[in-house]
Amino acid sequence: MAGGHGADAAPGHLPVMYAQVLDALRVQGDGTYLDGTFGRGGHARGVLGQLGPGGRLLLMDKDPEAIAVAEREFAADPRVSIFRGSFAQLAHWDATQGGLDGVLLDLGVSSPQLDVAARGFSFGKDGPLDMRMDPDSGESAAQWLARADDREIADVLWRYGEERMSRKIARAIVARRDEQPLVRTAQLADLIASVMPRGKEKIHPATRSFQAIRIFINRELADLEAGLEAAYARLNAGGRLAVISFHSLEDRIVKQFFAQHSKAPPGDRRMPVEQSFTPTLRTLGGAEKADEAELAVNPRARSAVLRVAEKLPVQEAA
């Protein structure tokens, strides 16, 4: 993934697909909305600006730096509640028990995470090889690469990065760590570049590998699956779920989840009785992309895809 979640595109710029997201959520003044990926609050500010005194905005992020920004800017507003944790846990947060009128999940790594070398996400900026969105939880990328065998590393690079040279890169990582520990992003990026032919591709040779390791370290796809289920469970009838993804692995999960709840499964001729199906979601449009005006000021939005669904009332679904 070349860019990250658009919690903020860049200083002075609106977050990724800002106007489309606010339109998709259809914010009601007295509604309750959850931003599961606060980042630096770009989308949250837009939602809060449309809420009346009776509305509520629930903010989540597992990055402590993002939560610090949320606390500093929003904690004094009685309409706002803040929770540090993955959106996969949203159904366990007491504040969501009363139901939600809208949920936003803006996936992937945020621009502040990418741009700060010390977070270890970027192959373009040398820093500690960490990659954890929550630096207080789980293994860092360096710790995992120090213990995983070449088969496990290759599997991660292929599964989450679709890296065709996964086995060759994995063998090189294991051979290099026997000589010296891999603890810096530049070390890993240079090592991958040394065994990867650049060819005609414009992207850096380490792009797919860094994406794959980051997704694995942060359990991003498992969290997405759990987060979609949790958001679905907490949405009120008529509530909207808006998800921005940045690569095909994420988008496929979102698309399949929406289809599972909105479309009858294909018929099975071996079944003597046709299975009944009651849709509980309605998809709103297809995959939306950022427009040219946004791309001109925020190139990281180029790979962004927005999908939106609305929860159907029970009587409408029957």
Rank of each mutant, 00 (worst) to 15 (best):
D101M: 04
Q89N: 15
A88I: 10
G39F: 00
D101S: 07
A91S: 14
R72M: 04
P53D: 08
M131Y: 14
D106L: 01
S81L: 12
A91V: 09
P78W: 02
E71R: 13
V69T: 05
Q28T: 02
L107G: 04
Q50P: 03
P128A: 11
D35L: 01
L59P: 03
A88C: 15
V80W: 02
R72H: 13
F87V: 12
K62Y: 15
H43W: 09
A118P: 01
Q97N: 14
G108K: 07
G98Y: 11
G49E: 06
G54F: 00
G99R: 12
R56M: 10
E71S: 13
V80I: 15
A95F: 12
E71G: 15
A66G: 08
G108N: 02
I67F: 09
G108M: 05
V109T: 12
F121H: 01
L107D: 03
F38T: 07
M131L: 07
P53A: 11
V80P: 07
S81G: 08
P78M: 12
A95I: 11
V21M: 06
L104A: 00
D77P: 06
P53W: 01
L114A: 09
R72L: 10
P53V: 08
L104E: 01
G29S: 08
L129D: 11
G54E: 07
R26S: 07
L58C: 04
R79S: 02
S111R: 05
P15Y: 09
V116Y: 10
D77Y: 02
V27G: 01
E73D: 12
G54N: 09
D23K: 03
V80S: 14
L59F: 10
G42H: 11
G46P: 00
K125V: 00
G102W: 00
L100A: 14
V16Y: 09
E65M: 12
V21L: 05
A44M: 03
P128Q: 08
L105W: 08
D30P: 03
G124T: 05
G98M: 07
A68D: 15
F123W: 03
A19S: 13
G46H: 00
Q20S: 07
L107R: 12
M60R: 04
W93E: 02
A95W: 14
D106N: 10
V109G: 08
V21T: 06
R119K: 11
S111Y: 11
G31N: 02
L114N: 00
G102D: 02
V16L: 04
V69F: 05
G127I: 15
V27H: 01
Q113V: 13
A24N: 05
D30C: 05
G41K: 00
D35E: 06
P128G: 08
G54C: 02
Y18N: 06
A70P: 11
R40H: 12
V47T: 04
G42E: 13
D126T: 03
G85Q: 12
A76I: 05
T32Y: 00
G29N: 05
L22F: 05
A95H: 15
Y18H: 08
G108L: 02
L25N: 03
S81F: 03
I82Q: 10
R40L: 11
